[in-house]
Design a protein around this nucleic acid. Structure first.
Lengths: 212, 212
DNA sequence: CTCCGATTCTACACAGCGCAGATTTTTCTC
DNA sequence: GAGAAAAATCTGCGCTGTGTAGAATCGGAG
């Protein structure tokens, strides 16, 4: 009855097969970039990592689990990169907003395919959805603080900092996803528009302006 | 090579099998609500519509095609309901915004599962993605007009009406999707937050207030 | 050299899809 | 309302790709 997950086990013990695990993830990202999720078969991943299909199931319980691990690794990096600076209370709100958006966009530039896959399969592979939601939640939390510091009322009403931050974070996610999915991605433009909206919401009318 | 689509044909001639087509769509929406996409097998749909699995392929070339048809039908209704009034130049901007958001939310209430499925599979089933994108594009167009009437500069810069409308439309979509996906959906709250942001973006500070 | 866990491989069973071809039911024409 | 064409339906096959079982190999400790 109890459906087994997570292959057979392996979680700690710094054995040598950890290299294989890395190789699997590396190959997966490559194949993902080249082919996309569906055309990418478990066979291909295994071969790319130098093992047979059956062997892969020693490391991951399923194709989805591989994908999930890859997404998890990427989102960890993202959260690290993008939220530390804005979370600092001494960072001015405008800079915090710009920083968070810029860093996130950077992640979309460097690991666009993984990011897109995460969004695309967030609903199909619940674990990925959870990871994504958790990440956005972290952003929301941090940005709520930023909004408060910018003068938006604290509280949990639908027009208070938390709700606004939440919706704006999802907006930013969507905008970058959209931008990154275009045949000719223009992240810069998306950044500008998002920043503009964030700024308008906190009220201070002062520009991204100057530039170009 | 030329891969055939759309089952065998059937397009005009008001034959009687049109009822079956309707029955298939009806059953699909029901099963979707009960089970979700993946657990819903073609077998089950066919049975629900009173025919055998093989017969279903007379009407639709694949499971995905069925889904696509269902989504298309739903989005047609949505576009009809939500964009006509705001598109009227004499409609005051605030009302236009409220109307569009309200009607869209209504669609999420009544056909939440179909709407969610559309979003969830927008990337997996390209045809659905196209339908969704086209719908949002229609909204964007209409709402661009509304923003312009509200005083937002026309033009195609990243901070002009089109870009803002685009991003805000996707924001609204995402917010409603989020809200509708919660265990206890609270569309009303999402509506309030979105409306607030739209209002803040067009600058006029005046309430959702004056209910009824 | 032997044992044990870690790793790997080969082979199998299965679910669900889409298609082929035969068959039955409608619909149309006279 | 008989007969032919078109529409609608059925049964059964074959395929792809997954996940699992169980046997074989490797590598270091004793």
């Amino acid at each position: 009855m109890a459906t087994e997950r997570t292959a057979r086990r392996r979680r700690d013990t710094p054995r040598k097969g950890d290299l294989r695990e890395q190789a699997i993830l590396r190959t997966t990202e490559q194949l993902l970039e080249r082919d996309g999720v569906e055309p990418m078969t478990v066979e291909a991943i295994a071969k790319g990592a130098g093992i047979s299909r059956g062997s892969l199931y020693f490391y991951f319980g399923s194709k989805q689990e591989v994908l999930t691990a890859l997404v998890a690794r990427t989102l960890d990096t993202l959260t690290q990169d993008a939220t530390v600076f804005p979370d600092d209370e001494t960072t001015p709100p405008h800079q915090a907003i710009e920083h968070a958006i810029d860093r996130t966009a950077d992640m979309w530039r460097r690991h666009g395919r993984v990011m897109r896959t995460a969004v695309d399969y967030a609903a199909v592979i619940p674990e990925i959805g959870d990871l994504w939601t958790a990440t956005v939640a972290t952003f929301t939390e941090v940005m709520t603080g930023v909004l408060v510091r910018a003068g938006v009322p604290e509280g949990d009403g639908p027009a208070d900092a938390t709700a606004l931050a939440h919706t704006l974070c999802w907006m930013t996610e969507r905008a970058l996803y959209q931008a990154a999915s275009q045949p000719v991605p223009d992240l810069a433009r998306a950044i500008t528009t998002c920043t503009e909206i964030w700024f308008r919401v906190i009220g201070h009318r002062d520009g991204t302006g100057s530039g170009g």
